[in-house]
């Protein structure tokens, strides 16, 4: 055991608390301002609200299709993740078991190459192409999320699958299992921890993403996601910042609630994904 140094100990906790306050102050300001009347905010920006004033939320909800946007965000995130779970492990399994063949080697190399190409490089032609194909909509956005999560996901899964011994599936083949059945009953269950990691990382990214919805959904008002709604709502609160903070809180709330309950899984998912990547 190390001996404890009381002065250092106090200093350490003070520093950590100061950092925590810096992180939480914006959230504090958001919450109290959302609950105040404009005149209360004018009197003191930082004080707690005098009473529970909920009209700001009512105004934001009245001026926008908040619940619709919330539902849009959920649908887009869920469908993209579902597609990814169907697509990525299947692709990666086929690649890992056929690395000696030209076709599989080439498609895997092209996929890894794609990881190095930032979205902004393909942004302009992608949007032109989508506009011409009539895909500037919900389904189009999901296809793009599938494409981009596929690149990184395949890299992660191929790395993981390489560590799974062949013997497991050999015996399944001996018993007469087809390739697909082997995948479904032997391999896929082994991938559950990786899939959980993928859901956390990509779910967080898709839910919070702003640039793609801005490019793909901007003209379809009713298809907006929460971050896009938040950005567009900017024009409505130019003169009323209580309203602004109420809308911020509404946008952040679903994620904050999820974080409070799933904090452990979210942090470990992000950590694992980054370390394996």
């Amino acid at each position: 055991m190390r001996q404890r140094n009381p002065t250092g100990d106090i200093l350490l906790h003070l520093l950590l608390t100061a950092g925590a306050v810096t992180i939480l102050i914006p959230l504090y300001i958001t919450i109290v301002t959302a609950l105040k009347t404009p005149s209360e905010s004018a009197a003191s920006f930082f004080a707690l609200p005098g009473s529970l004033y909920l009209d700001n939320f009512a105004a934001v909800l009245g001026k926008s299709h908040y619940f619709r946007f919330f539902l849009n965000s959920i649908t887009i995130t869920a469908v993209s993740l579902l597609g990814e779970i169907l697509l990525v492990p299947l692709f990666s399994y086929a690649v890992v078991r056929n690395m000696d063949r030209f076709y599989f080697k080439v498609i895997f190399m092209l996929t890894v190459f794609g990881i190095f190409v930032p979205f902004q490089v393909v942004m302009l032609p992608t949007i032109k192409l989508f506009s011409r194909m009539g895909l500037l909509s919900f389904p189009g956005l999901i296809l793009l999320y599938l494409t981009y999560t596929f690149k990184k996901g395949a890299f992660l899964f191929v790395g993981y699958l390489r560590s799974i011994p062949l013997e497991l599936e050999e015996s399944a083949y001996m018993d007469g299992c087809s390739v697909f059945k082997t995948y479904l009953f032997i391999i896929f269950p082994l991938l559950k921890p990786m899939i959980a990691t993928m859901i956390v990382i990509d779910g967080l990214w898709i839910w919070n993403d702003f640039l793609l919805p801005l490019l793909v959904l901007n003209k379809n008002h009713l298809q907006w996601t929460l971050p896009l709604f938040q950005f567009q709502f900017k024009n409505q609160y130019t003169f009323d910042f209580n309203l602004a903070f109420a809308s911020f809180l509404l946008s952040m709330a679903p994620m904050i609630i999820l974080y409070i309950f799933m904090q452990k899984y979210i942090i470990s998912g992000i950590t694992k994904g980054a370390i394996k990547g």
Binding site: L87, V88, L90, F91, Y93, A94, V95, R97, N98, Y103, F104, I107, L110, T111, G114, V117, V121, V122, L124, P125, T126, K128, L129, L143, L144, L146, T147, Y148, F150, K151, A154, S178, V179, F180, Y183
Partner: peptide, 25 residues
């Protein structure tokens, strides 16, 4: 053939929505 089929959805998606835009760009 089964293995090749496994890769097809991803390859079509990636080719059409990533490689094609890259070349167009």
């Amino acid at each position: 053939l089964t293995y090749t089929t496994f890769t097809l959805p991803a390859v079509v998606l990636y080719g059409l929505f990533f490689m094609v835009p890259l070349l167009l760009g």
